[in-house]
Design a protein around this nucleic acid. Sequence first.
RNA 1: GGGCGAUUAGCUCAGUUGGCUAGAGCGCUUCGUUUACACCGAAGAAGUCACUGGUUCGAGUCCAGUAUCGCCCA
Length: 1086
Amino acid sequence: MTTTPPVNELAKQYRPEDVEAQVAQRWDDANAFHAEADDKGDPYAIVIPPPNVTAALHMGHALNNTLQDILIRWHRMLGDNAMWMPGTDHAGIATQTVVDKRLQAEGEPALKDYKKIEADGGGGREQFIEKVQAWKDEYEGVITGQLKSMGCSCDWERQRFTMDDQCAKAVREAFFRLFKDGLIYRGKRLVNWDPVTQTALADDEVESQDIDGHFYYMKYPVIDDAGKPTGDHVTVATTRPETMLGDTAVAVNPKDPARAKYIGQRVELPIVGRPIPIIGDDYVVVPDPDSDDAKAKMASGFLKVTPAHDPNDWEIGQRHTPEPLAAINVMAPDGSISKDHGWDDFDQWQNNPTADKDALNALLGQPREQARKSIVKWFEEHELLEEIKPYRHAVGHSYRSHVPVEPYLSDQWYVKVTDDRLRGAALRAMVEDQRAPSAPGSAGGSDTGNATDETPSPTHPPAKPGAYPGAGAEGCENQLRFYPERYAKTFQHWHENLRDWCISRQLWWGHRIPVWSISNKRLVEDGYLDILEVEHPGKYHYWSEDVGWDESTAHIAVGPDAEETEKYLESIGAKQDPDVLDTWFSSALWPMSTLGWPEQTPELETWNPSNVLCTAREIITLWVSRMVMFNTYLHGRLPFTDVFIHAMIQDGHGQKMSKSLGNGVDPNDIIHSHGSDAMRFTLASMTTQTQDVRMPVDMVCPHTQKTFTPKFVITGAHQSKVAAPLQDSPYAKGKQMVSSFGLATGQASPTDEVPAARNSSEKFDYGRNFANKLWNATRFALTKLEEAESSADGGGSPGLSLGIADRWILSRTARTIEEVNTALKNYDFHNYAGKLYQFVWNDVCDWYIEAVKPTIAAPGGSGARSRQVLATVLDVSLRMLHPSMPFITERLWESLSEVAPKRGVRGMDPDENELLVTADWPEADRALVDLQAEELFERLRTVVTMIREVRTANKVPPRETVEVSVKLAEELVGMIGPHQGFVESLANVKIVAVGSDLEKPADAAVIVRPLVEVFLHNQLDADAEKTRLTKHLADVTGQVKNLEGRLSNEKYTSKAPAHLVQESRDKLAGMIRERDAVKKQLEELG
RNA sequence: GGGCGAUUAGCUCAGUUGGCUAGAGCGCUUCGUUUACACCGAAGAAGUCACUGGUUCGAGUCCAGUAUCGCCCA
């Protein structure tokens, strides 16, 4: 049990470190974040975008999770059955790479070594996975700790990991069903190959970067039918000379008048000696030196065709008739030149007299970069190099290893996402009003156009639409909505241009592909297939490539919970595919797998679809799309109905905050310097619909705890600006520290003398100051409520006898509740935070508390009523602020409940020991909206402000109480009377006269507004007064002219809405009054 | 090359369907520690709303173009 310190022990400043752990413990004790499927209330669920276990979270995650927590806490308070599912992602390639790099840096055996051990049968794969597993355990712990420090109210009992048993089962089931339904197939294709991590990548794992490269113009000799050089040659232009070893044709555009004649002739491929045809293809760019198009400018008209190493060449090869061009792969998986991965005619040409045998052999084993140089040199030496021109062009790079991706021919597994059951369903899921008319799915039909045919799986049994349960995904149409809605376009466009999804990865860290392969011939002739059919019905699905059954390989997918089947397959010599699934395959199942799918659990029934996916825009293609396709196909429901895309956090230089760049800031650093609530509230208030958030980052010197701006350096391929790994302390002479960049990249390691430095950012002062304000306002209220406890009359409806300030603040409260509700409904976090900031600081603190200060402690009467109002207003404020500032509000609410268990006004008294986290959300009571009170209060406030202004202008010391008289327009004369004390106390004056016909005393300073003049007695500094009034007169005169001009414009008076014209007239009248009054005062001054 | 977004005070950003003399926080200037808060209070200075045209009685807001920056997709 925790004990609550008495109110008078609340610190003068809010100290988050004293509060956060204690409050977290109370939530934990109450199991406040846990929900059961059959709890009361409408289901409300959010599934966390599972952070990668590659590294600790940074501010981007802090933002993402703060927003989710705001939503889930809000709905919990609304009485919904709110559940936030937490977990982490194994992040296949990313984690494997990080661990490998770390092992290398530490001089430990790394992936390369384990691969050797594995090859020698020593279990290297298992050993390496253990290393990754240890990393995962460590970072999963770090991440969970960070989320808890942030106050994330996840249902921690339910925490999952994309590779745990439950998720693994979902992966097996999904793979099995998709395989069975013809939506997973194996194909030999060009894939995006990462030669460093040595795995295939999906299209969207490739980032394009502009590279300063070259165009090489290389001559290929034309040969006659006998293979003899004719003396003619063609010049091919390429950016990648090294791939010429795999050329199987030269292409010319048949419409190219100068070159079409070459079609049908042959050239001999230099070095290799391979004769290859010159073919016609429309794809080839016709050279045009005058063109604006860089390609036409650079083109030679002859295109070397290398189907195994270029996607466009692959297409040309496939188009070629009568049969496709051969695809000759000349590289090993590491990107070096190799004859062992598909260069089948190597030996044939090696012994050909026209080949350069020595050069060929020398090329073997050379990395692709070096091979490029060697080949260019060879062409130069043989006078076949015509020219080299510089050329800047986009090159695909691996998003993990950052090296250029190699188009690489290999066998991979694909999900047929272009099938209407997946792609079409995703498009039809979009709400109609966000769907652009061009969408294939917009008509609700099943025709997805030709795109499906571009990625044929010719050997696969044709898919039968609707033949499988769940395949229709009926009931998912028109329900998926994007906030802000422009992102719907991104989603739609992605699906309309989708290609099949390569899901196999040549990695070790991930879900192993559940397919066993064996020679088809053996399987059938030895009767194994029959045994499978009889003894393992429904546990497997069989498919074989269509290349003649006796030569082909049988692929047998096995579903979940079928260990006997797996054992049997192993026993007959079938081998499980060594590859693992793309990490996004398991992520795509996340909203289902975390709730127990494929089991039909109550959780799945209750919380799928979840209500909102909260994420950054970069992930719409990688993740959102695939969740929608899988959830609709496999479970017949959407994974979520709303997608909220929030801003990205950038550093002070406008660079995206990211783990790979190493410019991330640990939320714990900010929590350390500013507190969790301050961080959260600031992040929420920075979240607008369009603008990414720029966050200049400071460092905290660990030697002095003082904050400073670090030294930056330019680094990396993107020329990024980052904090130098080592920093000198600007405060402690000769002392150094390691920056978070140094730490993240391993470029510097902290020691006792040179410790790691935390980051901080002044941005969060905003939230910290606000938290402190809230803390002290409550502290003030608590002391007043406590003092008055004995005399307070407690209950009863305050009704009509409320003072003007009470009526005003209650009205403002009711309206703020409405504004806050609207903001939250629209995922408008900026306004949610902003309206509350304004309400608490400007309305409650600056005016309400100041207004009631003199009377609130008085026993009975207006004091008691104000105490009640203040308790109510604070109570409501704390409730509304709770989702964004959970710790401080929980703590303050506890004290408030103790001191003022009865709030009185709206009957929202908390139960005993109730926690704010599960308390009710306040209801906006329209009856409290009091426009008259607001208008009157506004007028009184104007008078106070006027007096303060004229006081300051005349340098009246703030403590000095001076006499004033107030001249009002006739209709307002009665206004001040009942509220004289209010004005006097807030402006520190004594009002000696109020009336409509007052004359200014001779020695008074004056301030004028349209309906009000205030005379400040005994304060006349004639010169200063003259200057001030002259400036005022100029201002007012300008405005009068402006308004007169507008109103004398006939077009304005006739065309503008009547109420606006009337407003202008009223305003003009007021301004004229003000001008004349100022003029009169000036004249009197002489 | 296509798409999306941005450009408003020294800095970071708001600004709803076009409508009073464009706002906030920080920073800056002046004053102030009367028991909620100096992480505070009061008053103040500060903007050619990127640029050029157009529509309109009226444009920061709508349209067209230009420039610069960022992101996504090829």
